[in-house]
Design a binder for these strands. Structure first.
Lengths: 332, 332
DNA sequence: GGGCGATCATGAATCGATTCAGCAGTTTGG
DNA sequence: CCAAACTGCTGAATCGATTCATGATCGCCC
């Protein structure tokens, strides 16, 4: 009951050896006699000994904890990412502090401060516009960071080729005969938003068409299902030619858009085709199965953590478009 | 560039005061002269000072970190829980270490060891059968724990009344005329599984029927969509009366079951009604909108964290059944 | 038996923030 | 004018694990 945490000193005393020996048993077991080691280990279990990570870190100067800041833990995309990270960290006996910035720079700054104080081994971030400078502060403290789902030549990063993703999605829709396509985008300062747009433009140009005429862009302040719904309403009620297809920033946004289409009694993909992004696990099970650009999320997280622990170079993954009924007339 | 982390000593030196004074500025600012404080604070920003959490913890004996172990971070149910926890912790300047046990006792033990070493302020767990003993070990180390989504008289806990949830779901299905209901359950050693079954039995008895005849239980080893599909196949291909309704352990399992129904060309709810659990955000948007028992997940997490930080008593929330087309003939 | 390595074990010093007894200097009260 | 009370600051001691120069012990060979 009363038993407070046992320290190496307690273990040493019980085993009748010095603290140095106990430490050796823990960190260099081969340098200790079989007999002494057994005695020490026995004492450790008897006292229910757990080494104190704080003291350990303080002395060692490095921690066995890694921080990750993602934009929204509520989004399965990011939790899959986290899973990948955690898998890799577990291999090296590290733990993960997972933080959700909620796309709020304030919160992000707060978390970065906390992680810096924790003296984490490194930080993995899905960056927002304002992130980069703060990472500079971290580096000055000797804390390395890796950008996830983003690409930068000045920073180690793992990413998916969003230009390719945008290109695949729009090529597909053009191939389905659509000539007016709504891009329900995220904030313009997100790299993903811009890269996918670039891919979209490329696809339109490759088809010999004019991007200005074909693409209509609505930037959503937040990447949520409600915003997706609102964005679609905005586009439908605007003057000018009505789009016949929607390319959504992600499946959640697509969910909101489809909700509105259903409210209005519009058929998918007859009246309006929809393509999402991320291919979340429920995409295939929706009222209309959703075409989506799949990203290797777990590998991405794994690679990010690996980068931190092993100092490898950049990594870029390739996304893959999964076509389903929401955008394919032949399947309806 | 070269700049390593600055310590209180560095700050003290630059500000021309003693380390004790720097510490006072940080922890008891009112006991320091305006002038000295200003000078110290200036030195701190100049050196980009961040206090070292390891040293702090080592001395203080308590940490500002809390661990949470959930059964599957891939499940939005648990991430919502995590969000609630994080919200509460942020109020008190604590951070969260989020771990996913994947329903693997081995992994859980591993995480508990790590958290113990971290000297976390406390641990929040969605417990499995084998968890309880290990929490005893923690308590002996002076680390409190709170059970989430579970109820125990011997342990602080926050939970949802799963008996009520099971009762509501089955009452609804009985009201729809179903007399043979398949319960796609989790492992029998999960409290949720058992409580919902108890609620189901109560509902059947309240209707004056025989639980043995009405309820058919299939225990799934894992609570995944694939297992849900497999469980439904198993039930359909078994001898005996075929069920006309499915009550699934959660929406993910329901997703798998509905997938199989669709494969077989069975209509929902005409041939087979489906009710899920958790009411995940996509439940309303599925091919057939899914009836589901909603739980106040974020509040649950908030309450769990609050319990840890403030030592309040138990808390039990009430779930609420949301009826949609998947189980309501009138809406089809 | 004395000398020489080799093998293990020792324990003081260290990491950085916090605490607290104690000191110098100032104010108050009789 | 001195004691007492108070203010603001000091700096050594502390938390627990790790490291490493040093010491102890043993075996081995000439």
């Amino acid at each position: 009951m009363t038993a407070q945490r046992a320290s190496v000193k307690d273990v040493a005393q019980l085993a009748g050896v010095s603290v140095g020996t106990v430490s050796n048993v823990l960190n260099r077991p081969e340098s200790v006699t079989e007999k002494t080691r057994a005695r020490v280990e026995q004492a450790m279990t008897q006292l229910n000994f757990h080494r104190n990570a704080s003291a350990r870190q303080l002395r060692a100067g490095v921690s066995r904890t890694v921080g990750a800041i993602v934009m929204d833990v509520g989004n399965p995309y990011y939790t899959e990412l986290a899973r990948g990270i955690e898998d890799r960290l577990a291999d090296d006996d590290h733990t993960l502090i997972l933080c959700s910035s909620d796309e709020d720079p304030q919160r992000e700054a707060q978390f970065l401060r906390l992680l810096a104080e924790q003296g984490v081994r490194g930080v993995l971030v899905t960056p927002m516009a304002s992130t980069m400078q703060r990472l500079g502060d971290l580096r000055r403290l000797g804390i390395p960071s890796v950008l996830m789902d983003s690409h930068s030549t000045q920073h180690t990063s793992v990413g998916v080729d969003h230009v390719s993703g945008g290109r695949q999605a729009i090529s597909h829709l053009l191939g389905q005969g659509h000539r007016r396509i709504l891009y329900l985008a995220g904030p313009p300062d997100l790299q993903q938003t811009r890269h996918r747009l670039r891919g979209a433009v490329e696809a339109v140009q490759a088809a010999g068409l004019d991007p200005i005429e074909v693409l209509q862009v609505v930037n959503l302040p937040n990447i949520t299902s409600n915003e997706g719904q609102r964005g679609l309403i905005e586009a439908l009620e605007a003057s000018g030619p009505t789009p016949t297809a929607v390319f959504a920033m992600n499946d959640i946004v697509a969910l909101g858009a489809m909700r509105e289409l259903r409210v209005r009694g519009l058929s998918i993909p007859g009246d309006m085709a929809v393509v999402g992004y991320d291919d979340l696990y429920f995409a295939a099970e929706l009222m209309t199965p959703l075409s989506s650009v799949r990203q290797p999320m777990r590998q991405l997280g794994w690679a990010a953590a690996d980068l931190l622990l092993t100092e490898h170079p950049h990594t870029v993954f390739e996304p893959e478009l999964i076509v389903r009924a929401s955008s394919d007339l032949r399947r309806t």
